[in-house]
Design a protein around this nucleic acid. Structure first.
Lengths: 259, 259
DNA sequence: GGAATAGTGTCTTTCAGACAATATAGT
DNA sequence: ACTATATTGTCTGAAAGACACTATTCC
């Protein structure tokens, strides 16, 4: 490096001359899909619903309001690490799909000061939230159906964040294989279809099973589950006739509007 | 609102108890496509190249290095507004496609302190940069071909930001109609094809003209340019035989891996 | 006529969409 | 036998992909 020819260098640089943010929180939209069985007497597909985890604030500002879980970043972590830390605190588990989707920085969005919030969404399999739900049963944290959450007077600009998260997760549900986050390792085509439908209400594909299993251009995304002896694995969890089990591969199709 | 039952409220809340970020910069990856004619004697399609605008730093840190244009957010603006302001300073024009794509917050990414950077990409039609280029001809700001810029020792983590921006803009080029940012209002199919090729080097669609103009599911994205008297407008800017001019409509196809 | 680009004809294979039909196994 | 779900058969029309062919206009 050359000698400094400017008026600043490491020893005299100071950030104190400028107004700086008062905090960089990460807020997390934690989605899960709940299942409840539709019929006790016969086997049938469950009723599924997209839910979001909210916490009730105990402090000023927005005391008493429901809000997205989150917290402030520390200096020694990235915002992704911060979100991951908060997510683990909230759910008790790691290894969860966590994806950054937007920044919220409108002046005045937080009465505490100049807060630039980084918004993530997380997709958690219902089974992994059960312990937590029991522990917090009567507490200030609970799952809401997304349709209800969107009608609540959420704290800060969290309604906007939630709206954007829903839009984003719907997009990702159709353009990536994140559906796997809501499914067991091995699943039937009907289960997959139902999960997609749950997140994207107007999803409809005729002859879905054919397209997903035998269309050349899409065949790569699923593979048949095979047991130890090379037989195809079947399940009759939800039906009389047993259905072929599938699993996601690692491949993601590339999409294009031009071809 | 209820009376405060907690230990904090507007009058005693203080952010000073926490370490706060030293700044929230916005960095902008400004892309343009340059055209240079291939042949002076005959009409032919131009050679196009994807370029990125960089500035040479004059101060510590990374003095002398090339870096992405950007600047610090003020308290009274959102990071998008900040990016827009910086972009206008750099290009001299407004009304430019500007899109947020990621946050960069690894500890230590900026020797000046705890800086959380918000990265945008902008797509500028070459014609709108010409004035600026002349003004800054011998200065510390210039366009680099993206392939070259990726080999430079850029300041901060700007190489990573640039790599991510290139990846993102390629994705958006194929999944949205941002190609229009690099084209005049009306253009030929060949021009469109060339622009996509320039951004996405391995793009290849056989029978492109057929798919884009007469395939039912894709027909909506372009429309034929019509002149005042209802005739179809043609151009022979780049060819002997004149070609039909098209324009983008407002519609964007929805993509899905499932159908 | 040659060059450069624009666009069409034609054929084959694959895919989408509709819908009927059959298969399986629990009750 | 009835039922709920899974899966296949069959037919039609649309689209993809290959590639040869024609069209236009400048040089």
């Amino acid at each position: 490096m050359n000698a400094a020819i400017e008026d600043e260098n490491a020893s005299n640089y100071s950030t104190a001359r400028y107004r700086t943010p008062d905090g960089a929180p990460a807020d997390i939209v934690i989605f899960t899909i709940t299942s409840s069985s539709r019929n006790q007497t016969k086997k049938s597909l469950p009723i599924r619903e997209l839910q979001v985890l909210l916490i009730q604030r105990k402090k000023w500002p927005f005391e008493g309001c429901w809000a997205l879980p989150g917290g402030f970043c520390n200096e020694d972590e990235s915002v992704y690490e911060c979100a991951k830390r908060e997510l683990e605190e909230e759910t008790g588990v790691g290894e969860i799909h966590l994806e950054y989707f937007n920044v919220y920085s409108e002046p005045g969005r937080d009465p505490r000061g100049w807060m630039i919030s980084h918004a993530f969404f997380a997709l958690v399999n219902e089974s992994r939230l059960i312990n937590r739900k029991a522990a917090d049963d009567a507490s200030d944290v609970r799952l809401f159906p997304v349709s209800e959450a969107l009608k609540l007077p959420l704290a800060f600009d969290h309604l906007k964040i939630l709206q954007d998260a829903v839009e984003r997760v719907r997009d990702r549900m159709l353009t990536t294989t994140i559906a796997k986050q809501f499914l067991p390792e091995e699943f039937t085509i009907s289960e997959l279809y139902q999960v997609i439908e749950t997140v994207v209400p107007d999803f409809e594909e005729k002859n879905f099973i054919r397209k997903i299993t035998s269309t050349q251009s899409r065949k790569g995304i699923l593979e048949e589950a095979i047991d130890g002896s090379g037989e195809r694995k079947m399940s009759n969890r939800y039906s009389q006739r047993s259905a072929q089990l599938y699993r996601f591969t690692d491949s993601q199709p590339k999409l294009s509007i031009y071809g």
